[in-house]
Design a protein around this nucleic acid. Structure first.
Lengths: 122, 122
DNA sequence: TTTGTGTACTATATGAAATAATACACTTCA
DNA sequence: TGAAGTGTATTATTTCATATAGTACACAAA
């Protein structure tokens, strides 16, 4: 379900948090679904439970999950988060394209990239 | 000429290298121009010369500059690098847009972003 | 020869990340 | 009630990249 890249410079707890963010944003993990327990996931990934907990704390802080004492962590309603994520993504794209323009990338090249992606899937 | 962000998680030497990459790619530093000496820049930025040297080693490894013993470091011809950088940037954009599509961003939203940027400047 | 340059080396300090080992409160369920 | 599974908190320790510090040497230019 979750894999780890030990080559990456990103700390493990951030990698784990990011994976779950993606799963939640894309709807692969629906609201109210229970997250794997800290101990379970630690065993699965062969890392320390504290690292998992740190990832979960981060996810909670960002609004992706909420904890219930004695029961577990659960996925939050993510509709608001999706909107935020869209905005931040558009901002990232904007910055990249501005850079690209300065490097001499033509407008049509960007358009092509978009066209291909939106024609491909459906 | 170069500023440092101590809030950033990026190591100093990577920050410095990135700044120079940008300057070189955008043509603000032309080929054959001499880089600031390791010691000079270290004093300017109030950091250790070894850190500058690490940044320069990285830049050399990536082909942005080349060293001449006893004389200094000089900016390489960057035309090839610009091409590489364009390709890598387009790839980054591609990935972001694919993510965006999955999150439900519409094609027109991306087009708008591009249009604004390419109409604005000129 | 002197000055400024790159380069190399060793040692040390610092801080984030990760591990390890416990402990406690809570919920669920047999 | 009691056992098992859950989150949560704490402290100590290890590990590693980063950054600093100090020194040394070879080369080029004036």
């Amino acid at each position: 379900m979750i894999s780890i890249d030990y080559q990456s410079k990103l700390p493990l707890y951030e990698q784990i948090a990011q994976k779950f963010q993606t799963l939640i944003l894309k709807g692969a993990l629906s609201p109210e679904v229970q997250m794997p327990s800290v101990r379970t996931l630690a065993v699965e990934l062969s890392i320390n439970p504290n690292t998992i907990q740190k990832a979960y704390s981060l996810l909670e802080q960002q609004g992706y999950i909420y904890p219930v004492k004695g029961r577990g962590n659960f996925v939050s309603d993510s509709s608001v988060l999706v909107q935020k994520e869209k905005e931040s993504l558009l901002e990232d794209v904007r910055q990249l394209i501005e850079e690209g323009k300065e490097l001499g990338v033509r407008q049509t090249e960007f358009i092509q990239v978009i066209d291909r992606i939106y024609r491909k899937g459906d």
